[in-house]
């Protein structure tokens, strides 16, 4: 069931004229993905792997649609090349709404392994990240999306277990 926070995320996407959304699911993202699918002004194209998703987003952007990718932080182990040689090299905006698994509250030990590398990978790529751990922080999302579009760069929103579990 989508929460009010999920709806606020969708509202921020729409407010920033995002039209194209691709996603790879995560349990924590199920409500948002359900709303993306249901929202008429958003074209939702699920992808199989996040680097494929970045290709779709690059194409959609060239076609005049502002993109967004929704994925889990484990995907950062997949997309380094696509971020560096496609998104950053060609100067494409790409907000990444990321379910940040492996932080306190996590029940699956293996998720902690990629959590350890998440911010390090983003730092290495000079990608700004914004760590959301409480639902009230969603009010920053709109300005973060605008920042990605203005600067034509990837940005990461890392929304952790505490953020999703206390969302109403």
């Amino acid at each position: 069931m989508p929460t009010q926070t999920d709806q606020e995320i969708i509202d921020s996407l729409i407010a920033n004229k995002i039209r194209f959304v691709t996603s790879v699911p995560c349990k924590q993202l199920s409500g948002v993905i359900e709303l993306v699918e249901r929202t008429d002004s958003l074209l939702h194209v699920p992808c199989n792997k996040e680097d494929e998703g970045m290709g779709l987003c690059a194409g959609a952007y060239l076609g005049g649609m502002q993109p967004c990718i929704i994925m889990q932080n484990t995907a950062l182990g997949v997309v380094v090349n696509s971020l560096a040689t496609l998104i950053q090299f060609y100067h494409f905006p790409l907000p990444m709404l990321i379910s940040y698994r492996g932080e306190p509250g996590e029940k699956v030990a293996c998720q902690v392994e990629m959590a350890l590398h998440t911010k390090a990978i983003l730092n290495q790529l000079h990608i700004p990240y914004y760590h959301f751990s409480e639902p009230a922080q969603v009010n920053r999302l709109s300005s973060i999306l605008a920042h990605a579009q203005m600067s034509r760069k990837p940005v990461a929103i890392l929304a952790d277990a505490a953020f999703w579990s206390s969302a109403q």
């Binding site: 194209f20 074209l43 680097d51 290709g55 690059a58 194409g59 959609a60 060239l62 076609g63 496609l86």
Partner: peptide, 17 residues
């Protein structure tokens, strides 16, 4: 660069316009 993504970029573009 970015081996493998040609089809995906083209397809995203086709969907968008």
């Amino acid at each position: 660069g970015t081996m493998g993504l040609c089809s995906s970029i083209g397809f995203g573009l086709a969907l968008a316009q």
